[in-house]
């Protein structure tokens, strides 16, 4: 795992937060919620493989089969 992914997630988080704030200020709360959910899905899709890897490692370490 490279450190890049942490920076990428942080950047996505910052951008999504700013977009949400702008949308909320323009009375578009519903779209802001959708953008927040979209951001969550994007970040999840990035880290999902890493989470799977983590579970595999835990299973290996504790010999859980």
């Amino acid at each position: 795992m490279s450190v890049d992914i942490i920076f990428r997630i942080a950047a996505i988080g910052i951008l999504i937060t700013v977009i949400c704030q702008i949308l909320k200020k323009s009375d578009r709360d519903d779209i802001a919620t959708l953008v927040g959910i979209a951001g969550l899905v994007i970040v999840l899709s990035i880290v999902i493989s890493l989470i799977a890897e983590l579970f595999e490692s835990i299973k290996d370490i504790f010999t859980l089969y």
Partner: peptide, 8 residues
């Protein structure tokens, strides 16, 4: 902002 997001 969307452009920057897509880029990242």
């Amino acid at each position: 902002l969307l452009g920057a997001l897509i880029y990242i």
